[in-house]
Simulated scan of single mutants.
Amino acid sequence: MKLTLPDGPFEAYLFDCDGTIADSMPLHYLGWKHVLADWNCEFAEDHFYSLGGMPVTEIIAMLNERDGLSMPVDEIRRRKEEFFFGNLSLLKGIPEVLEHIEVSHGQVPFAVVSGGTRSCVTASLRSLNILDKFETLVCAGDYMRSKPHPEPFLMAAERLGVAPEACLVFEDTDMGIEAATAAGMASVKVPGPLERVLVG
């Protein structure tokens, strides 16, 4: 798999975390299956991947509404995160994205823009030994409107002091690409786990 970057130059790189930097979506899905089993709540894998970038609390609320359930949002989120933290040793990075981070670090500032919680994002980046490469992290709870709204990306650009049109976004989901486009930013699509299996 090779990433094709649009023509630059760019003054900042903004990265989604799960599924873009960290190959963490399969691990997150196992966490969902683990906690939702107690509620007999079905959550198809392709549906989960289609929601990439949506904060955990919003996913739980969506599942509650879909199935007429009353799963406690904070408890489900906490248990899912505990599962994720307990299995971090299984986490790997996505090589092509890590390569861009290594090559470009120090040339332009980096930000992570994620629908994940700050604790999950920080743990993932620390596990991959790249946490110190990012000037700022924009995570769930930092913004009012999540992807596909442009607010998270615009917040990252503002924190870095870079104009939106000078930012390049790395994203693995259509929702994330839509948010980047709405923010006036160029983007590069990172193939998801299912696509990488087909390509490989």
Rank of each mutant, 00 (worst) to 15 (best):
C41T: 10
A12L: 04
R145K: 15
M175W: 07
Y143S: 00
L27A: 01
G200T: 08
G19M: 03
V162G: 01
L69Y: 12
I76Y: 02
M155C: 10
R145Q: 15
P55M: 02
K80V: 09
S70T: 14
E42V: 08
G86I: 00
T57M: 14
Y29G: 05
S114D: 06
T122G: 07
T57H: 14
N87A: 03
E195A: 08
K2D: 13
S104A: 14
T117Y: 12
G31N: 08
M71Q: 04
A61M: 13
K133A: 09
L137C: 08
T136C: 13
G141V: 07
G200N: 12
D46T: 15
M185I: 05
M1F: 11
L14Y: 02
G86M: 02
A61W: 11
D142T: 02
G200L: 05
T173Q: 06
E65I: 09
D38M: 11
N64R: 07
C41F: 08
E171S: 00
W32K: 02
C41K: 07
L131C: 09
E96H: 09
V73T: 15
T122N: 10
E165P: 09
A12F: 01
D23P: 00
M144I: 15
L125Q: 01
A163Q: 15
Y29A: 02
K80M: 03
A37K: 14
K133H: 13
E102D: 12
M62E: 14
M155F: 10
G200V: 05
C41D: 06
E96K: 09
N64G: 05
K33L: 15
I101F: 07
G19K: 07
L137R: 02
E178W: 05
P152F: 00
V113D: 01
A140Q: 01
L125D: 00
G68H: 10
A166E: 13
A140H: 02
I76G: 04
D46H: 14
V108K: 08
R118N: 06
Y143H: 04
F83G: 01
K189T: 06
G115P: 05
P150R: 01
N87K: 03
F10Q: 05
L5Q: 09
M185D: 04
G116P: 00
S146D: 03
A61K: 15
A157S: 07
D74V: 08
S119I: 13
H28A: 03
T57V: 14
A111R: 04
G192T: 11
G184H: 00
E171A: 03
A186E: 13
F48Q: 06
F134I: 09
E178Y: 07
N40F: 09
T173A: 11
S70K: 13
F48C: 08
P152D: 03
E165A: 15
A37D: 14
F10P: 07
M1G: 13
A111Y: 04
E96C: 10
L154R: 05
F170K: 00
L168Q: 10
L91A: 02
G53C: 06
V108E: 10
L168R: 09
E45L: 11
A12H: 05
R78M: 05
L160T: 04
A183Q: 03
E75W: 09
E99T: 12
M62G: 09
V138M: 00
G31A: 10
D74S: 13
E75A: 11
P152V: 04
A186V: 11
G19N: 03
I60R: 07
